[in-house]
Amino acid sequence: MMREILINLPIESHEVPNLRELVGWDGRHSDYPTLFERCNFWAGLRVEKNNELIAFGYVAGMGLQHGYMEDIIVHPQYQKKGIGQSLVKKLLQESERVGLEIVTLTYDSKHASFYNESGFKPCSGGLWRKKD
């Protein structure tokens, strides 16, 4: 059984990197706990049986009009059950509660329908990346 998705759920520094690695991403262990200090807010979900973190996402920005949503992650064993959309919905509700008027994100095109169903509209933009 799962618990409720919570805003600013207490999370240990190793938990998000571990979850990132479970979905095939770089763990980025050095980002934590700094991320929790710098982002506007985050949301997470744990399973009741062992208190394992199975979903995570956050919104960063200046806390003014605009925020950026990032790292929507759901443990592979719990994907395709509506948890990701519930996580995004919770983050958007919190965005609205704190006064954000615009939330943007970037995503792989294979996830376009997920984000469209979650209320995001495709738009143009740009991406800069540091050269290796």
Rank of each mutant, 00 (worst) to 15 (best):
M1L: 10
M2Y: 15
I7L: 12
P10S: 10
P10A: 06
L19G: 03
E21M: 13
V23K: 08
W25K: 04
G27E: 09
S30K: 15
S30E: 15
P33E: 04
C39I: 12
A43V: 05
N50Y: 01
N51Y: 09
N51M: 11
N51D: 15
N51S: 14
I54E: 03
A55P: 01
G57E: 02
Y58K: 11
G61S: 08
G61I: 02
M62W: 13
M62I: 12
G63V: 07
M69H: 02
E70K: 09
D71T: 05
D71L: 09
I73P: 02
P76R: 10
Y78Q: 10
K81M: 14
G82R: 09
S86H: 07
L87D: 05
K90F: 01
L92G: 00
L92M: 15
E96H: 11
V98F: 09
L100Y: 01
L100R: 00
E101I: 11
T104I: 06
T106R: 07
Y107D: 00
S109N: 12
H111T: 06
A112N: 07
Y115K: 02
Y115L: 03
E117K: 15
E117C: 14
S118K: 04
S118P: 04
P122M: 08
P122L: 12
P122C: 01
G126Y: 15
W128Q: 08
K130S: 12
K130Y: 12
D132W: 07
